[in-house]
Design a protein around this nucleic acid. Structure first.
Length: 286
DNA sequence: AACGGGGCCAACCGCACGGGT
DNA sequence: TACCCGTGCGGTTGGCCCCGT
């Protein structure tokens, strides 16, 4: 079966938008909201396809769009997020307020990818490129894998909640057909944003943290692997938000710095008795 | 001054998915 | 359950602009 075109092409304008068209679109959406994109062009008096209108609005005309060049911090964040999420531009964009997926995609393809290549880093894997030599790629450290998985879960939950809060029905987590119930990542996200999480972030000097319950939990949905509790018994930091912090746990500050963890280790251990118990989480954070 | 090549980015295309019927 | 429609998403394209020759 051949899919019908999104709109009747004949007689519709294509290519760059004129100022008058922008004005018509902005004026209509400000007054009526976009409603059905398909019917919008006719109602707004535009000779455009609905899809074209949607793209123009979401990528350019939306009032919350941040124009101008990306800051160093934004570029760094895009690289870090790409290392975690891959080419999921919408999920990455959800972490950069005012930036669109299209903009980030363009930034990546025109600047960041080349920069990584010039630094000898594979832009797809974010690992040192070994393609031109006999060197073999080193195995990923378990702690690194753990870190990436946890961070991935957090980022995805952040992105999803961000989308939900802006009344979007899109779900960013991969694969599952439908998500109607609260997921494990939500709990971890709540922890992250709770007093406990904030204390943890503070102790991490604002960097992304490694979060490790004392035991397990391997939870369904998104797997969160955890490090074993250190076999020594360190002096705990003062209890923060009912949770005890232990020094002495190897920490990597961000995915891009995993290769250099020795420099950035922050030595924290996050001990939450019973964190593997979902009812505990529900009771504590709902 | 003219021309060509490359960079950049807005816009388009086609696929996938979810919701409605 | 199957089909259709609307929308979102990622990949690709086209055209403008800048810079070097």
């Amino acid at each position: 079966m051949v899919r019908a075109p999104c709109c009747e092409k004949t007689g519709l304008k294509r290519g760059p938008w004129a100022q008058e068209e922008d004005d018509l679109l902005i004026d209509y959406i400000n007054k009526n909201g976009h409603g059905s994109w398909r019917s919008l062009p006719k109602l707004a008096g535009l000779l455009r396809c609905g899809k074209s209108c949607r793209l123009r609005w979401t990528n350019y005309l939306r009032p919350d769009i941040k124009r101008g060049p990306f800051s160093d911090e934004e570029e760094k964040l895009v690289i870090q997020l790409h290392a975690i999420l891959g080419n999921r531009w919408a999920a990455i964009a959800a972490q950069l307020p005012g930036r669109t997926d299209n903009e980030i995609k363009n930034l990546w393809n025109t600047h960041l990818k080349k920069r990584l290549v010039s630094m000898g880093i594979d832009p797809q894997t974010h690992e040192p490129s070994f393609s031109d030599g006999p060197l073999k790629r080193p195995p990923t450290l378990p702690s690194t894998r753990h870190m990436a998985q946890w961070e991935s879960a957090r980022m995805e939950a952040e992105a999803r909640l961000s989308m939900e809060s802006s009344a979007s029905v899109s779900v960013l987590l991969p694969s599952p057909k439908k998500r109607t119930t609260t997921t494990t990542t939500d709990y971890f996200l709540r922890i992250w944003h709770s007093e406990v999480g904030e204390s943890f972030q503070k102790l991490n000097k604002g960097k992304i943290g490694c979060f490790s319950p004392a035991s397990q939990p391997s939870v369904s949905g998104t797997t969160i692997e955890t490090e074993p509790k250190p076999d020594y018994e360190p002096e705990p930091e003062p209890r923060l938000g009912g949770v005890t912090f232990y020094p002495g746990f190897t920490h990597v500050s961000s995915p891009s710095e995993m290769e250099d963890s020795s420099d950035t280790a922050l030595q924290l251990f996050f001990d939450i008795p019973g964190l593997n118990d979902m009812s505990f989480l529900e009771a504590h954070f709902n």
